[in-house]
Amino acid sequence: MTQFAELVVTGLVTGAVLALAGVGASLVFGIQRIPNFAHGEYLTFAAYLAFLLNVPFGQNLVAATAGAIAGTALLAIGIHFVVLRPLRGRGLVAMSLVTAGLALMLRDVVFLVAGTQVRQYAIDQTKVFALGFLRISPGEAVAIPIATVVLPAVALLLARTPMGKSMRAVADNRDLAAISGIDVERVGVHVWLLAGALAGLGGVMLAVVEGTFDPNLGFQVLFLIFTTVVLGGIGNAYGALVAGLVLGVAMDLATWNGFFGGLDAQYKPVLAFCVLIVLLLVRPQGLFGRATVL
């Protein structure tokens, strides 16, 4: 029973990271019509930026995270203005290749600058927080409160604020949004800011939860992010939020001993792959998407 509860907790934490990254990727795809294969590298960039602030510069982890969020948002905007906007309108395939190339470049820059050795933040990873009968790691102790605050806040932002409504409108029907008087360009910039910031937070959370990380951090979860986006319905931001949590919990619960001994932990990604394949075959619009073509 303890194992079950602990697996739910770790699943929710992984799921929260996927949800944060997934919302950003989903919005970007819905609004900019770009499948951002570099999204994983935004997480890596954030993790290393936070490391830089935390270890050599000696800031505490909260300040380092704030810096990482700001830095990643700036990175996203920078890439938008310097690379993606000038290349706009070349079609889905071309833009996919551009972001894939960008991903390789970003990852190699991190390799060159930071080296391949694994890194850790300046926190004690062997510490345990007891929550009733649950043992929570420092990563989880940080990630859970953040997730419970940030995820609903993002949902509220999308639902109630003018910026959120503009984003949803542009994702829903870009031309009509423009006709309605919405500055679609500016919304596009806001989307990158938001996606970058969320990826920034997600990246640091992921690095803390993993304990040690290397430049492959974001790449390892890239296809999980895409599974989240597809599962939630491409372009559907709320969908990505929920789908991320569902996927995270499903992967971890699959290893529970109660399920015929449980799936071997190394096969968790295989489970996610299977989910993606089945989804694309049976219900490509995802759990919450509409069954129309782009």
Partner: peptide, 22 residues
């Protein structure tokens, strides 16, 4: 427009809100 003349994923009220450019 002829075809895509509403925001299908948004509520009727939200459609009207967008109509007034928020």
């Amino acid at each position: 427009p002829q075809l895509a003349n509403v925001f299908p994923e948004m509520s009727v009220l939200e459609n009207l809100e967008i109509g007034s450019a928020l």
